[in-house]
């Protein structure tokens, strides 16, 4: 436990020192929100989105940027780099366990995701009048399950890939799929209906986040799929993970 805390302290510092990663995971969604928010038509209620302004409708998709970047792109890349460079192996020769480093990476990633989400929700509320998530419990559950599903997928990539290059070869398409179905590249109302339906069930489950943000409880089926992905991918990752 002592070693874990020390490792977590250092991993947090290393994360904060890595400015490009920090900006992508924590800063980018809020930055895009601010840019969009300065366009007046984006702030006006729009019948296309049940009378909400576009910034409200699009906010959950902005959250997907952080979740996808931190969970399925950066996490597996960092872990496979640590493995490839023998960082995990060196730890295995000390009283600290390489599992402590893996856990610390998960905690740091989760921390970045939560900070980014809080920042986005607050800036949306304070600067652009987007209401705080109305169904607070539903939003928290949808957010945590969606995050868990993506982190588990990220761990699975790290487990399956033998090298950092292989990890990136898997992570980047996965990252792009998550972004696409999360409505980041094209807002979802522009997508055909069947793609929107697929997106409902693609982690992190942007529809569940949108439902809870705007007031209704997320659909149980959406949440159940996220839980299922988290458990299956997480278990597979734990079984397949190689320390060297």
């Amino acid at each position: 436990m002592h070693a874990f805390r020390q490792i977590l302290r250092i991993e947090t510092r290393l994360y904060l020192r890595d400015l490009p990663t920090l900006l992508t995971t924590v800063g980018l969604p809020t930055l895009i929100l601010v840019v969009l928010g300065f366009i007046p038509s984006m702030r006006r209620p729009d019948p296309n989105f049940d009378g909400q302004p576009f910034v409200s409708y699009f906010a959950p998709s902005l959250l997907v940027i952080t979740l996808a970047a931190a969970g399925v792109n950066i996490l597996p890349t960092v872990l496979s780099t640590y493995r490839e460079r023998g960082v995990l192996r060196r730890l295995a020769t000390t009283p600290a366990s390489p599992a402590a480093l893996l856990a610390a990476q998960l905690v740091v990633t989760l921390g970045a995701i939560v900070v980014s989400a809080v920042l986005l929700v607050l800036v949306a509320r304070l600067a652009f009048g987007v209401p705080l998530p109305r169904h607070a419990l539903g939003f928290t559950v949808a957010f945590l399950l969606g995050t868990a599903a993506l982190l588990a997928l990220g761990l699975l990539v790290a487990a399956l890939a033998r090298t950092t290059k292989a990890a990136q070869a898997m992570a980047i398409p996965l990252f792009m799929l998550v972004m696409f179905f999360g409505g980041v590249y094209l807002p979802r109302f522009l997508l055909p209906d069947f793609l929107i339906r697929i997106g409902d069930y693609t982690p992190p489950g942007v529809q569940a986040l949108l439902d809870a943000w705007t007031g209704t409880a997320p659909q149980p089926a959406h949440l159940a799929i996220m839980a299922l992905v988290a458990v299956v991918a997480g278990t597979a990752a734990a079984k397949l993970f190689r320390w060297e």
């Binding site: 250092i10 290393l14 890595d18 460079r85 023998g86 960082v87 060196r90 020769t93």
Partner: peptide, 14 residues
């Protein structure tokens, strides 16, 4: 027991 392994590196920014 202290071990120094071949080709064991550290994170870039530490």
């Amino acid at each position: 027991v202290g071990v120094q392994l071949q080709e064991s590196q550290l994170p870039d920014r530490i």
